[in-house]
Amino acid sequence: MRTELKPTRLDRVFSRLDREPERPAHIDVPVMTRHRVVLFSSTLAFYLAIVWAVIITSWLVRLDWQIMFFRPYQQWPEIHAFLDYYVVLGQRGPTAVMVAAWLGWRSWRQHTLRPLLALGVSLLLLNITVGAAKLGMGRLGPHYATEIGSNEMWLGGDIFPSGHTANAVVTWGILAYLASTPRARRWLSALSAVTSLGVGLTTVYLGTHWLSDVLLGWAAGLLILLALPWFEPLISRAEAWIFSLRDAWRDRRTTAPAPAPAAAPAPAPAPVGTSTLRTPGEEAASVRDTGIAARAPHAPIVPLHLPSTPHLTRSERSPVTPLGHRRPPHADRMTRGTSSARPVAGG
């Protein structure tokens, strides 16, 4: 019986990713439509209304004090440990790292820097707008309130608007903003809204923010997401500039300068007083030597093979020295064993 392995869900996901080596063409960049302009204007009006209601110490400030005296962390202490971890979803450092890791992988798969650049622009706008509002209004939190019923404005605090809430709206909402399909955008929008709502209410439960701080934080984060289409041309130019730098760096690495050819050695000058006339054999040898010297330094030299000869034994080899005694014959020397021919000198 033949059994075949069925592909798992993870295998199907990776096979689909392998079919997307380039940037998908169906991803459209959001533009500032009339509907988005209306939403931006309405959110901005809500933002200004919250600020004005706190400045004039309206019913919203009285509601802040009533919730503060209610002390939710004492009413439901059993969920305190869980909410201490849940509020981390609104902290800028951990959430930025998690979302940047996902968007970085998506940028690598789709060969585009737009997700990371959009995240960077949104976080930059968040730091500028929310930070300026915090320092400008200087409101104190519930744990540092000085006078019951007051708005605690311009006293050196930094909690108005809520940074946790605004960061949760922007960081998780950017996933919905960068979604590639309308269905994914709807689901991610609902998920980011629930997450940011839970983070804001958690800060009220823990007593670190007023309720009005949370309302203003929601409005501040939503304003940044609605204003992102105005920065899309800047994101496109930054992406094109970064890619041009990358291409120029690659071109510098691939185009290396070619090495200069080695110069042929100059022939040695002839000694003074010698004749420059050469025989045909010497001329051919000189041409052959010059060609070998001018050959490229790394060109292989082909050895000359002599015709093979049969191997002879030592006794069969022809002598290479003349036969007889090695010393040349001298006329005044006598052979051993012969008497001298000199006359005997007598008396």
Rank of each mutant, 00 (worst) to 15 (best):
R92I: 11
V37H: 15
M32S: 15
G141Y: 01
L225H: 02
D251N: 11
E283D: 12
L201S: 10
P257S: 06
L191C: 12
E283W: 06
L191G: 14
E283F: 10
S15K: 12
L306Y: 11
G136D: 11
W102A: 14
A176M: 02
L113M: 06
D28Y: 15
A238T: 05
T8F: 04
S42N: 10
A331H: 13
L175D: 07
F14Q: 11
A268F: 00
E283P: 00
E78A: 13
R183C: 12
A285T: 01
T8S: 15
H35D: 14
G291Y: 04
S15C: 04
W65T: 02
R36K: 14
L39C: 11
I56L: 10
W108G: 10
T129F: 12
Q66P: 01
A220C: 03
E152Y: 07
T208I: 05
P94F: 09
I159F: 09
D64V: 08
V199N: 09
L222V: 00
P269K: 02
I292D: 10
E282N: 09
R342H: 13
I224Y: 04
H35R: 15
V121Q: 02
P297L: 09
W76E: 11
P319Q: 13
L188A: 08
R183I: 09
G104W: 08
G207S: 02
F46C: 12
A219P: 00
G141E: 04
M98W: 02
A81T: 05
V121W: 01
S308W: 07
A25F: 10
E239S: 05
G281R: 13
I301R: 14
L201P: 08
P94V: 08
V130K: 09
W76I: 13
P257N: 05
V170D: 03
E283H: 11
R139F: 08
A248I: 00
G221K: 06
Y177I: 02
R250M: 09
G273F: 01
P7E: 03
P21N: 03
D251S: 11
E4H: 14
P297Y: 03
I242T: 13
M32K: 14
I50R: 12
Q74C: 01
P261W: 02
L188M: 06
V87A: 15
V199M: 08
W52M: 12
L312K: 14
L135R: 10
T165D: 04
T171Y: 06
V97Y: 03
R62I: 07
F82D: 10
T274Q: 12
T279F: 11
V302L: 05
T57C: 01
N167E: 02
I50H: 12
T8Y: 10
R342S: 11
L103H: 12
L126M: 04
E20Y: 05
P115V: 01
G131D: 03
P30E: 03
E316T: 05
E20C: 10
T181P: 10
R16P: 00
G93T: 14
D158G: 15
L277T: 11
W241M: 05
L44S: 13
S275E: 09
P257E: 03
V54C: 09
P261F: 04
R185F: 07
F70M: 07
F231P: 01
R183H: 15
T112M: 11
P300I: 00
P115I: 00
L216V: 00
W154V: 11
T203M: 13
L201D: 06
S150I: 03
L211W: 02
S192N: 09
M334W: 12
P310K: 06
T338P: 08
